[in-house]
Design a protein around this nucleic acid. Sequence first.
DNA 1: ATATGTTGTGCAAAGGATTGCATAAAATAT
DNA 2: ATATTTTATGCAATCCTTTGCACAACATAT
Lengths: 340, 340
Amino acid sequence: MSYTLKDIAKKTGVSISTVSRVLHDDSKKYKISDETTARIKSVAKDLGYRVNALARGLRQQKTSEIGIVVPDISNPFFSEVVKNLATELRKKGYNFIVYDSDEDLNIEISGIKSLLEKRVDGFIIAPVGQDYNHINRIKDLEIPIVLVDRCFDDLNVDSVSVDNVKGSLLAINYLIKEGHSRIAFIQGLSETYANETRLQGYKIALQKAGITIDDQLIVGDDFRAFNGYLKTKSLLGLSVPPTAIFTAGDLIALGTLEACRESNIRIPQDLSLITFDDPVFAPYLSPALSAIEQPILKIAEMAVAMLYNRIKNPGDECRRILLEPKLNIRNSVAHIVSNI
Amino acid sequence: MSYTLKDIAKKTGVSISTVSRVLHDDSKKYKISDETTARIKSVAKDLGYRVNALARGLRQQKTSEIGIVVPDISNPFFSEVVKNLATELRKKGYNFIVYDSDEDLNIEISGIKSLLEKRVDGFIIAPVGQDYNHINRIKDLEIPIVLVDRCFDDLNVDSVSVDNVKGSLLAINYLIKEGHSRIAFIQGLSETYANETRLQGYKIALQKAGITIDDQLIVGDDFRAFNGYLKTKSLLGLSVPPTAIFTAGDLIALGTLEACRESNIRIPQDLSLITFDDPVFAPYLSPALSAIEQPILKIAEMAVAMLYNRIKNPGDECRRILLEPKLNIRNSVAHIVSNI
DNA sequence: ATATGTTGTGCAAAGGATTGCATAAAATAT
DNA sequence: ATATTTTATGCAATCCTTTGCACAACATAT
């Protein structure tokens, strides 16, 4: 069983208040005698006393817990994000509770509900991204919140994401420079911020280069590997297949690799590939995968810094931070000579 | 702000107890009139009432939360484990709080302390594995606990792991069958269960085949990539380097790949590689990596089932479950002809 | 001798929900 | 008309910690 302040008070013959104060190291502040302090501390230690965070949270009306919600913790991008958030939060004295919404808006909503019941002091959410009424409700409750990776244009909430448009621009411009013009884009979950902005960058880059956009080459609707596999298969079956594929996320790229292997398509000789996200294993894939890297550590640092600021200064203006993506060139894109 | 039962009671003119009962759907049990029930429910909805999990937990002396502790959530193996645990726990009506101990015993201990303060109803822990006094303390407190992936031989606690000895046997026997005899083992964190048992399997397999164990070929002490990189470099520098490397974990194998690429060593032509753990990306690496797969879903299912059973039947005998690993042969091991 | 300050500690309310026990009012039985 | 059930609800304690306010005892100042 677990001991309480009352138990210690009884054993030491002082009041509960005194025990509480001593265990908070407030002995000097309340001028509790050294003798009493020592006695209480020793009994507490003997009993293995542990505060009850529920009672404390209830009384103090705060928990020092932050709720984190991500769409897929087994996705390398998000597991890295969570890991870095964890480190940063710990530094600030916060604990956290992670929810995996499994890219499902309903699970996301119920997860947030449960975190609200737990009275977390703040939220860091990478929303599924197709709706934001529930996010608005958190804001209305005046609970600090920061969105990462995915945000909403018409929602005034602190957010940190990478500049997705720019990321796509980097990727597509690179492909164009290498001679490609028939470039496919395999999308992630549609109507999410990440996907729409990446798509937008793709289109802008093509237009600027004077390449007409072919809707046949814009496919897919899910960030997972299977989507990449299926859509690559169908792209390969086109009468005029693309010479390069740009995937909206790392798992999609894995699916593309699988489809190519199955169809004996060599990368980059027969098909070039570049992806958004740059997981640790990208350099060791066959071939080493060229990729758009997101500054994950910086995302986590910014997110925690912003959340902390909002907790301390609730009135501040909301900020939307866009961080710079980076193009990492490896061996999955071939230079081709235009046949015009 | 947040509303309480008291607010609803005041607004509806009934007592707090009645509100509580209605919101628990216990109207019939306590014979609360339909009219009252409807009124309370409607007011609760209008106000957006949300129970305070702290108050509830405090009163009920249980939280329906399970504490999960893993050594590295950015490791694909553990992120998959966590994902599956999450799914299974949700099915049973439990929430969970994840801690990443960063392969650091002290963080693990403080994480557990914090979870105990939060009064979690049970633990699922993949311990760092070098000490278990703190695990014993949980057991003494009679809080249900299940260890996954790593356990301790002289600690009588429920556990689910893969049969590591057998896994190593599968890997090494396969290498031997392909003609290898100079086989190196790059270890993970030493003195952990996972590492020691994998090492044991390595040794047994060699001995059975009549191959003398060369201590020069047993190196490393960390499950992360950098360890694989460094130790591969040093193995390659031996006067008689190994013809095959067996790595104790997936990240280590990535490090090995990096070192080989840097040194222009081709896999499998110049060096064969096989690893414990079989991450999603293994088939797409260069070359497709042969690996020992752990049944992650089954591990998660078993762990949750065992924890659930212990919560319901605290008196039952402790069980240690060993699951079967599986050898997935791909293209990273070459057949060589012995030059004797 | 009275006033003022310091030292060391305790009382009790508050935070929100749950739950065993009690009970008034209405219904039914004898 | 009285006794017994049933219906519908309320009271108050409990879970544990924190904290504003109070206060007794003693010291020091005037």
